[in-house]
Design a protein around this nucleic acid. Structure first.
Lengths: 165, 165
DNA sequence: TCCATATGATATGAGAACCATAGCAGAGAG
DNA sequence: CTCTCTGCTATGGTTCTCATATCATATGGA
């Protein structure tokens, strides 16, 4: 009797192994990018939590302190302090819209002209990514872009789920 | 005269566009995973910096406080406090090796039995990744695993470069 | 229309964290 | 043997976090 697994079984096992490898690599990537962000923030005088919140504001677009607190899983009073620091550092501005439906609300907007400083510090990483991307075909690049977007969305969903517990 | 670019030029432009998209998606992924880590850490009573350092210790294997400080871009005194908290919480142990070459050195080792708690909180994310991976072929999964590893390495290199400045 | 409750944002202050500096023990070079 | 350096931790001043309170505004129900 042939004790070898069928090709299908071998493939399924290999796919599971690759899945584990991908998740593990994602953890490693998350850790390394966190440390890189810490270094970048250090050069800009930004604490880790300030850097993360600035990133949320830049990527999401203007939002209220309450929305930022919920998004980042922080206490509103903590966010007030963070925004104080970011505003003092010239990274964001707080604005009130007199015509807004809710006149209590403040909108926090990132100052786009400062982002070039952040970008400059990510130069090394971005150059390395360009070289890495050069080794892939156009179809492969599309696949990678899709995967990263879907994974980011999965992270968002997982974070929201934990926030609700 | 036909003003359309040659197919090669169009492809190069498309590749550049995809490269920008990949880098942008990587920033978004980094931000989302940072927020997810914050939620996971919150459930475990771990501060963001404690969580990141624990991750370094788990992934890297036992290392000294000095090595951890350098790796994480933190002051040695800060690391002492972080290790105090991680030890108190039962996540790591500090050990001295009487036979070590340098008897001043301490080795910090993660307690593997606690990692299941962390893993449990990443369940949602990991399930989503499994579903995501199901949509890829074996060759594509290999490509993704390779890309994530190479990107993590690029992040490590970029962080080290900024640490040296 | 009025009132009670809820919410947005910030102020306050207690407790915790960060890190510059110091101290102690150990290591290394001359 | 001595001087300097390093690993790790202790100390204390400064900064940060957040529970609570406050004020202004919003909302829903009677």
């Amino acid at each position: 009797m042939n004790s070898k697994s069928s090709p299908g079984a071998a493939s399924a096992r290999q796919r599971r192994r690759l899945g584990v490898e991908i998740k593990d690599s994602l953890r490693e990537l998350s850790n390394q990018l966190s440390l890189l962000n810490h270094q970048v923030g250090g050069h800009l005088g930004l604490k880790d939590v300030d850097f993360d919140c600035l990133d949320v504001i830049v990527r999401h677009g203007p939002l209220t302190p309450s929305a930022l607190a919920r998004h980042a899983g922080l206490h509103p009073a903590t966010v007030t302090g963070i925004l104080d620091r970011l505003q003092r550092g010239g990274w964001v501005v707080r604005e009130r819209d007199p015509e807004a439906a809710d006149r209590r609300a403040v909108t926090v907007r990132a100052l786009p002209e400062r982002q070039s400083e952040v970008y400059g510090l990510f130069r090394g990483m971005n150059s390395a990514m360009d070289e890495l991307c050069d080794g892939y075909s156009e179809d492969e690049l599309r696949l990678l872009a899709r995967f990263l977007k879907d994974t980011a969305q999965a992270g968002r969903t997982a974070a929201d789920a934990l926030a609700g517990e």
